[in-house]
Nucleic acid binder design. Structure first.
Ligand SMILES: [Mn+2]
Ligand SMILES: [Mn+2]
Ligand SMILES: [Mn+2]
Ligand SMILES: [Mn+2]
Lengths: 240, 240
DNA sequence: AGCCGACATTAGGGCGGTCTAAATCTCCGG
DNA sequence: CCGGAGATTTAGACCGCCCTAATGTCGGCT
């Protein structure tokens, strides 16, 4: 497109760079990587966005020049406060859209993500606020991902992975990562979603899947699926 | 953006050109101009899209190469059937979105257009169909513009201009062009909208506005506003 | 210490889309 | 019939974003 078409008035005064869709995607990628702890590497961003490292280098230069990121040592990069504000704004729009599409239009759990991935770049502040109000100012999207508020602190990762629970534990699912559409559809069939409690029967090993009990039904969860599930251990069998 | 991000499966088999936002805007502009009768001129398209004529020339070449338009004599251009199909698809998304945003989110009459102008390029077929169904398959948007159906004939201009009515006529408003946001807000205050009947008192002249009676209230309509209003003359005083 | 592999960057090019300035064409009026 | 006004097109450039190929730079291993 070139110039961003959606008016966004709260653009924090100065802003040398245009907040194109592409820049927003880079911001979001860096936000996701760095929210896990370490700074983001060029190749890490490249892999997440499916572009080549040279493209990332060029873009990071432009983003550094406009104060969105700060490069530390060798292709390691962090968001500035300015960049983090915009990144959270994109994430907020993404998750509000997922919630809206799911609740109002009935888009299924595993399909909302790809829709929101496109629309997040084109939602005006006006529509963002209208959607927020229509939904009753939600703080979680359908996958349990926290929705950043317009202003104020945002904690991205507060849950513990299901993989850390042991046999006999009661685990309250609070969040399921939405990156794997097939896994989401599978989990929906198993009735595993935020708010549901599951009982751990056997931990996953390198070869064998995890076994859990949910709603009276025993089922197995592959390692890939287990890693998507996060929440809280309600009662631990290992406490004794 | 470059590559169009929204999947659109019914892409009619072959299609050398990418249907970017920009191409969709050109298609829509040519559709609007040519639906009034004559072919579109380079400068006409340029003016409507706020770009320079050389940009239009370059784009029309690419669109001709991919079979979306057919150039006739000197910068005069028509949509091919292939191009018209895509143009109607964009218009359909635009008007469905306007209807949806108005009815579901309460976006006001004069604001829906600019929102739809952006989102029309990013609505997947899935969401298009869900919105269509949620609205009960509407055939008119909030301004009375006809919504093209997925398949089948579409008639863009069936109404007669208010300017053609004379004193004493009862005029049923069926459509108000949505290009002028200020005029729309003004008409909303006057309760003039599709479905409303107004009584013509005096035709507009070069100097004087039109005078009409709507819901018991007398009011004047500037020439610019009058030209936006289209509909049907219900009872004509000139019949005698 | 020295080498090598992994990673990041530069160099150079392409494509889509825009612009300005200059050249060209059409068509109408004198 | 010819010239000029207006419209269109070409020429040349820029920017955003992407790529491949080549070059640099680091840390770890022998
Ligand atoms: Mn998502
Ligand atoms: Mn989510
Ligand atoms: Mn409109
Ligand atoms: Mn409309």
């Amino acid at each position: 497109m070139g110039t961003p078409s959606t008016l966004r008035t709260e653009s924090s005064a100065c802003c040398r760079i245009e907040l194109t869709d592409t820049v927003e995607d880079y911001l979001k990628a860096i936000f996701a990587i760095t929210s896990l702890g370490e700074p983001a590497s060029t190749s890490g961003v490249a892999a997440r966005l499916s572009v080549t490292p040279p493209s990332v280098t060029a873009m990071l230069h432009r983003m550094r020049d406009s104060g969105l990121v700060a490069t530390t040592t060798w292709g390691h990069v962090l968001l500035t406060e300015h960049g983090a504000v915009h990144a959270r704004s994109v994430v907020r729009r993404h998750r509000l859209l997922e919630t809206f599409l799911h609740r109002v239009l009935g888009v299924s759990w595993d399909e909302v993500h790809e829709e929101a991935e496109v629309l997040e770049h084109h939602l005006s502040t006006r529509l963002e606020n209208l959607i927020d109000a229509a939904l009753g100012f939600p703080d979680r999207d359908p996958h349990g991902d926290p929705i950043p508020s317009v202003r104020g602190k945002h904690e991205e990762h507060g849950e513990t992975p299901l993989a850390q629970s042991g046999p006999g534990d009661i685990f309250l699912v609070q969040r399921v990562y939405d990156t794997d559409s097939i896994a989401l559809r599978h989990l929906a069939e198993l009735d595993i979603r935020p708010g549901v409690s599951i009982e751990v029967e056997r931990r996953p090993s390198d070869l064998a899947p995890m076994w859990v009990r949910v709603g009276g039904e025993r089922c197995s969860l592959s390692c890939a699926v287990v890693n998507l599930i996060h929440g809280r251990i309600e009662s631990s069998a290992a406490a004794s």
